[in-house]
Amino acid sequence: MPSETPQAEVGPTGCPHRSGPHSAKGSLEKGSPEDKEAKEPLWIRPDAPSRCTWQLGRPASESPHHHTAPAKSPKILPDILKKIGDTPMVRINKIGKKFGLKCELLAKCEFFNAGGSVKDRISLRMIEDAERDGTLKPGDTIIEPTSGNTGIGLALAAAVRGYRCIIVMPEKMSSEKVDVLRALGAEIVRTPTNARFDSPESHVGVAWRLKNEIPNSHILDQYRNASNPLAHYDTTADEILQQCDGKLDMLVASVGTGGTITGIARKLKEKCPGCRIIGVDPEGSILAEPEELNQTEQTTYEVEGIGYDFIPTVLDRTVVDKWFKSNDEEAFTFARMLIAQEGLLCGGSAGSTVAVAVKAAQELQEGQRCVVILPDSVRNYMTKFLSDRWMLQKGFLKEEDLTEKKPWWWHLRVQELGLSAPLTVLPTITCGHTIEILREKGFDQAPVVDEAGVILGMVTLGNMLSSLLAGKVQPSDQVGKVIYKQFKQIRLTDTLGRLSHILEMDHFALVV
């Protein structure tokens, strides 16, 4: 994948999101292997301009796509893939009243899908469409860049269908997702969380590099694949309309690839034109409109599966009536509230959605109805927002919020430890010299600072030695090549209790 991002070429006709291997024109390309080798690009942008032909009021008969309808489940399912879809609609009884809503608040519980998330729908649909058009064949390999849930859905379907599955996901995604993927037989590649989507090191860039190296491999490409919004247009939206008897006044959905909100909203605009569509985008993402909503100094966020630093091709923002931004604290607070007060075992993005819903639905009156999409299960986040310690460490809970008995030293300040200034190293000294210094002084790690004293990161003896043994660096290389740029900081005025929580999850903390 090139470091400079080429513009994806656009073909003359058809839909841009065809499933299957992508040609340089962004659509299915038939021909000899030699032709494909000559024409197939190194990668295709996940934010390529959409060429979708959908228009409100256009006859369904003019759609270029294969459409399906929700099917009634048999008493005995032939395999677990038949437990994807037909998820329950559940009334939220307490939270709406707590925040003064007059309307009825309903939750579409997508964590009841077989793999635990709304992404099971698009995973199965992308595979079925690729099999139907002859792209996927027995023994082929599926590769997908994902925040985890699409990966789980694909790995689940691949396990049943017999495909090899490789999932490329950023490091910030939970260990629970990784464990589930491994249990399903998927191979996992992790990428830096802070890598831009168009960087060769991003999950998108690495996935395309693997595709170019592995024979008979395919990126189904949830960011561009029409099967993504079509899955929701054909099934999720129809289920909502049936469950609500066609009567709903507002739908609120958090947005990642945009397939969920695009597919549902398009069908609702056709069948229930008075329904307002509300999009939820986390602070630090750029999906919301108008652009002024996205202006923030924050560039990272903890909530998973929603928000991006690019506009995915499948996201149709014209069908969203209003956007709201959400933050991590309210997302996790509301997710825990949904679990504790409503018994809905949902993930953090569901918290984002409901946090926005109780604001947006203030305009609705008694007798009206708001539906929220709860995308995934708490299963993926047992060591994250479900953990009091994690919430404390991230600053989303305060010590006084917890009532468990603490040891005698818990409320003492870090400054009472009488710490001395640490050994520091410059980023320009060599790895070999740094190892000598650390061994001589008896230290395992040291902060790396520039000549102005600005902290650049941390270097550890173990990481340097393993990097040297693996051949990633040489003793003569500058130590700046092996620094940890993500590390926890703590102030002298913070409590030892807070430091204790940090050290339970990290090997060190830097006192500043």
Rank of each mutant, 00 (worst) to 15 (best):
K82H: 10
H17M: 05
G259P: 01
T68W: 09
D79S: 15
T5I: 12
I167E: 08
N93E: 06
E110G: 00
K271M: 11
R266S: 02
D129E: 15
I92E: 00
G263S: 01
P215G: 04
S27Q: 11
A71F: 12
D47A: 05
P145R: 00
G259D: 01
G57W: 09
S63A: 11
V180I: 04
E128H: 05
L106F: 15
A155N: 03
T5L: 03
D234Q: 05
R266K: 07
K72W: 04
Y233W: 15
A38R: 09
Q7P: 10
K39G: 04
K25Y: 05
D179W: 04
P46Q: 01
E128T: 08
I261T: 15
L124R: 06
L184G: 06
R190K: 14
A253N: 08
K172H: 02
I76C: 09
V168L: 07
E37M: 07
T87H: 00
E171K: 09
K25P: 11
T13L: 11
A107H: 06
A71G: 14
K36E: 12
T191N: 05
A24E: 12
R91I: 06
T262Y: 00
A155D: 04
V255D: 02
L81P: 07
T146Q: 02
Q222D: 02
E104H: 06
E110D: 07
G185L: 00
V118Q: 01
A186H: 00
G258N: 05
K102L: 09
V204T: 12
A159R: 13
G258E: 03
H17Q: 10
G26T: 07
G263Q: 00
H66A: 06
S147K: 03
K98D: 10
I143W: 01
T257L: 05
S19I: 09
S3G: 11
C109L: 05
G134S: 07
D86S: 10
M250H: 01
T235F: 15
Q7A: 11
E34Q: 12
G274N: 10
I166L: 10
W43K: 04
V252W: 09
R276C: 09
V160W: 03
A231G: 07
F112P: 01
D234M: 10
G153C: 02
D245T: 05
H66P: 08
A157D: 11
S117E: 05
P12F: 03
L251R: 01
S61V: 06
R266Y: 03
R196S: 10
